[in-house]
Design a protein around this nucleic acid. Structure first.
Lengths: 184, 184
DNA sequence: AACTGATACGGAGGAGCCTCCGCTTTCTCC
DNA sequence: GGAGAAAGCGGAGGCTCCTCCGTATCAGTT
């Protein structure tokens, strides 16, 4: 059990970060977050050793909505199309994170996300699509969800930077084509 | 025509950066590069407004070797296999850039490369593969080289982080599968 | 309620990034 | 070859990052 002041400070930080991220439309200074929470910068770093940790903690709760929408899509549409539609939502979700897109991108790029709780949940969602698609015969059965997530993240990482969506769209289509079963 | 001292300083900087990047195996401080070149930090920034600009300038010459190897592969193997083999070389090339991998990754991630001379040359090389593959019937004809490069960069961006190559390998295979002609 | 070890706090400080602008060097034209 | 303008120089300074460690606070124990 953590000490009571420690726990309180953690919550203050999380609240301050959430607000700060929402308000800002560019990189937020961590010192500013600490000040806003009324704690020292040292405390911030003790709780969230890297900027990424803080960002992940802030957005983990939001993730649920995204995952839920995936399940809904899967129930309503053929698995391959559902997956493609969900990819679009994922893209939008990431791009909606003004004020921390850059960090999110860095997380993706550095692979930080690849060892996080976020990644496990996302891969799980993709696995559902893949399993359904394999059963329906519209998606390959020999692909790992983690690889697909990796690819997806990679494409967003690069394509998300440009204001031109069409290129990202095309590369996502390309990815999906790679996921379709190949004729013998 | 630039002033003579300006030109000399530019060359000093380039030389210093090349050495520094080669020696270091982690992020190189720009102040260190400037000091090594014997110029002020201001001069460095005037010549290379961003770290990316400096990195690109240093590695542009090396790029030729990579492109040449692409042409050779294309002459020796079927286009689709040649492309896949070239992808592997590209990956290795990037990963060999210890001391600046992180920057290269950031360049890719931010899209800086996507508007650079590097990108034009790389896309050109890929276009050659695609054209040959389309003629041979082993690659789709309706894909843009820039999109393929984007995808490739995206995958490396994410997959390159982990020491485990197999995942990157699989995602590259996936990309190639997406590039194969689809049965009607 | 006082004691005390464990735990957590917080900010000073070292380092790098990048900008800005007063000063210096180079060039050009007479 | 000298004067003036244009171009370039360079480092101080403002900012953020992140670490480190002396100080303060908490929570069991007596």
């Amino acid at each position: 059990m953590p000490r009571s002041d420690a726990q309180r400070n953690r919550e203050l930080l999380l609240a301050a970060a959430t607000e700060a991220f929402r308000e800002a439309d560019e990189q937020v200074s961590l010192e500013a977050v600490a000040k806003r929470a009324g704690v020292g910068i040292g405390t911030l770093y003790r709780n969230f050793p890297t900027r990424e940790d803080l960002v992940e903690a802030v957005y983990l709760s939001e993730l649920d909505r995204l995952l839920a929408s995936g399940a809904k899509l899967l129930a309503a549409e053929p698995p391959d199309l559902a997956l493609r539609a969900w990819m679009d939502r994922f893209v939008k979700w990431v791009q909606g994170k003004q004020g921390m897109v850059e960090t999110l991108r860095a997380m993706f790029a550095s692979g930080a996300i690849v060892r996080s709780e976020m990644q496990e949940r996302l891969a799980g969602a993709i696995a559902d699509f893949l399993a359904a698609g394999a059963a329906a015969g519209t998606l390959r059965a020999d692909v790992e969800a983690a690889d697909v997530l990796r690819s997806l993240i990679g494409l967003i990482t690069v394509g998300g930077a440009s204001p031109d969506h069409s290129s990202l769209d095309r590369t996502l289509d390309l990815l999906l084509d790679g996921l379709r079963p190949r004729p013998a």
